[in-house]
Write a protein that binds this DNA or RNA. Structure first.
Lengths: 196, 196
DNA sequence: TAATTTTAAAAGAACAATCATTCTTTTATC
DNA sequence: GATAAAAGAATGATTGTTCTTTTAAAATTA
């Protein structure tokens, strides 16, 4: 028996994400992908059932990496302000580390390809987040709000800043680079909105 | 001379957006679009130079409609809280009125097709918004923050709520419907973050 | 240890379907 | 009768996927 070349699958995944980010979903064809990965078309089908399966696997892997990075050092019983700040920092670090993966996931999430599957490691993650907020509410650290309103306030500014950063220019059209300092500033203001 | 049928162009645009929202960018082909619009492929090329031109024109039109709706009743010299609330309400109304257009624009913005062109009516719009914030800062109604940080706090929560609404389920996986009341709640909290 | 067989990875050719676009012909209206 | 809209056929390239052949490495035998 001949063993699978682990490099091959990794290269396919990497090139696929690159192509999608640079050329969009209609820029990703199996033939072009094969050429970019310097393998034969049919080899892709050894690792992935078809194009759709490839896309879904890519997204699943990205979500898993995201969850891992986000949960580093996090505990639902943390003090709220420290916990939310850690979340911001972890997510920021993840995005800086894997900008292409993040960009791909944003494209995927906004496309019709996304089919919410509630089996992923996301579920554990979501549960931890909910516990975290419930704790903070009980301890009186934050105001009681409908879940969605709360999350929108807690993360909306963060993701908007990230979008500005990745777009390289905000409202004014002037180049913009996100920094720890700006993140801190936005966070302090966000906390004012969340405290009782 | 035979006159152009105005309905035709309108139908092409409408069907194109429908197809992109439901099947993604790779789901939009000129042949399928022609079939959906019940016209011949070549007729599309009377109204649009090519596929790329079609996509760009669609996006430009969507942006224009958005700006029109957003500016309704707005004046940069308004009291800040009233002005920002009007912005939220106008944008919310636009999204409820044209959900497909909004969805399309989100996909487009997250795709590599987007090429920031600074000639659009967006420029006037951006200038008005900047004036609006500058006024509020001078009057001492709001805290002075870097532009991007400010916009992220002022609109991040809003757009996150809208995303929850359009995704039909937030963090918890429970169906979610945005309402004026929830919007109000989020806005009140957002204002706490922006006041001096 | 060396030779041979087995197995699946990998390549490359082939498939029909579909792609964006253009060319030629028809049709409707001024 | 002039003109351009609209249709439809045709173009060659590219699409996703499969079939056939080759190749490399592990398993087995000697």
């Amino acid at each position: 028996m001949r063993a699978k070349d682990e490099n091959k699958e990794w290269t396919i995944r990497e090139k696929a994400i690159e192509m999608i980010v640079h050329e969009g979903f209609d820029g990703l064809s199996m033939h072009k992908l094969a050429r970019a990965a310097k393998i034969s078309v049919s080899t892709i089908y050894i690792y992935f059932r078809n194009r759709e399966d490839l896309l879904n696997q890519l997204y699943a892997a990205v979500v898993e990496t995201f969850v891992q990075h986000t949960m580093a050092g996090f505990d639902p019983d943390m003090d709220f302000e420290a916990g939310l700040w850690l979340q911001w920092k972890n997510r920021y670090a993840y995005i800086l580390k894997y900008p292409l993966q993040y960009h791909f996931s944003e494209q995927f999430r906004n496309s019709p390809l996304i089919k919410k599957q509630d089996d992923a490691p996301e579920v554990v993650f979501k549960r931890a987040m909910q516990q975290f907020v419930a704790n903070a509410e009980e301890k009186g650290e934050i105001v009681r709000l409908p879940r969605e309103v709360f999350w929108a306030i807690a993360y909306g500014p963060f993701y908007t800043l990230v979008k500005f950063h990745l777009d390289q220019h905000a409202i004014s059209g002037i180049p913009f680079t996100l920094s720890d300092e700006l993140l801190q500033q936005a966070f302090q203001r966000t906390m004012r909105a969340l405290r009782v």
